[in-house]
């Protein structure tokens, strides 16, 4: 794991964005840009990040940003990267998209770009709903979570985006969590050193949407990892490695109640739903354990 001293001091986000207090998306973006450095272009579809930049003619992002339509982010980035490579430039092209723009609307462009195999990094920061427009349900919303369009709790399960991306056999893919910024920094750094389409899925707890106090952002992120509902791993050329913070969760996960009770969005979750969530976590952890050992 990286140490604090390795992290560059330069900030590519000038103080300060218009993100909500305690926003983990701006925390993640801070580390993504620290790892990527100044020779970077961000492609941002409609999501919270396209709003928090500031108002024309000022922006708080100190790297070029291209704001694009929801469904076109990956297509745009793959064309942009092709153009840079043809011009002999090694500029990093990074898509920074929310879960709505990845799991629901942007998935065809994502799939197409991964199939073409152009050199770019796709980062999905997942706050498990359409946070920018006021928390409507998305494909990434977990079972039992209350959003403005599922007032009694969502009745469907979360779409497993990582499995969909893994099916494209990318050279590198990883999951990260904003509560572990050093782990995220290391993963972005590693992803950018590999050629081809790369994917990083960041869990980004959202204080107003998940209904907890803004000071608990790091705590809730760590609980997600400790209970095993979010597993940190990286898959390099098909070989899966579980990252440090998730190792203990893989051996002995905390009960899911700790994670659920910390958030207001699960207040309508019945014991049956909690049991179902716990079951799906156990199933997922068992699958990851087997995959790491090379059994399946």
């Amino acid at each position: 794991m990286s140490t604090i001293s390795e992290i560059p001091k330069e900030e590519y986000i000038t103080t300060c964005t218009a993100a909500c207090a305690g926003c983990s998306s701006s925390l993640s973006l801070r580390y993504v840009l620290k790892a990527a450095g100044p020779d970077t272009v961000l492609v941002v579809p409609a999501c919270c990040t396209s709003v928090i930049q500031g108002m024309y003619p000022n922006t708080s992002f100190n790297v070029p940003v291209y704001n694009i339509a929801f469904a076109a982010a990956a297509a745009c980035a793959s064309g942009m990267s092709k153009a840079f490579r043809s011009a002999g430039k090694k500029t990093n092209v990074i898509v920074y998209a929310g879960d709505g723009g990845t799991v629901d609307i942007g998935i065809q462009a994502l799939s197409g770009a991964f199939e073409r195999g152009t050199d770019f990094l796709y980062i999905c920061y997942d706050n498990e709903a359409y946070g920018n427009t006021g928390m409507q349900r998305s494909g990434a919303t977990p079972l039992g979570a209350v959003t403005t369009t599922t007032p009694a709790g969502k009745t469907e399960t979360k779409k497993d985006l990582d499995q969909i991306v893994a099916a494209h056999n990318p050279p590198y893919m990883a999951t990260a969590c904003s509560a572990y910024p050093l782990d995220l920094y290391k993963k972005v750094k590693k992803a950018l050193s590999i050629e081809g389409p790369k994917f990083i899925h960041i869990l980004a707890p959202c204080p107003p949407g998940w209904r907890y106090n803004s000071d608990k952002t790091i705590e809730v992120g760590k609980l997600a990892v400790k209970t095993g509902s979010w597993v940190l791993y990286e898959r390099e050329y098909g070989k899966l490695t579980v990252s440090g913070p998730s190792r203990t969760a893989l051996k002995k996960p905390h009960p899911i109640e700790e994670y659920i009770r910390a958030q207001g969005r699960f207040k309508k979750a019945t014991p049956e739903i909690i049991a179902e969530l716990q079951q799906s976590i156990e199933k997922n952890l068992a699958r990851i354990k087997k995959e790491e050992e090379g059994i399946c």
Partner: peptide
């Protein structure tokens, strides 16, 4: 130009939200 340029305090003095 329809270009935004980086500037400190692009979103105002957010300390007033506190």
């Amino acid at each position: 130009l329809a270009l935004s340029r980086p500037k400190k305090g692009a979103c105002g003095l957010t300390g007033s939200w506190r």
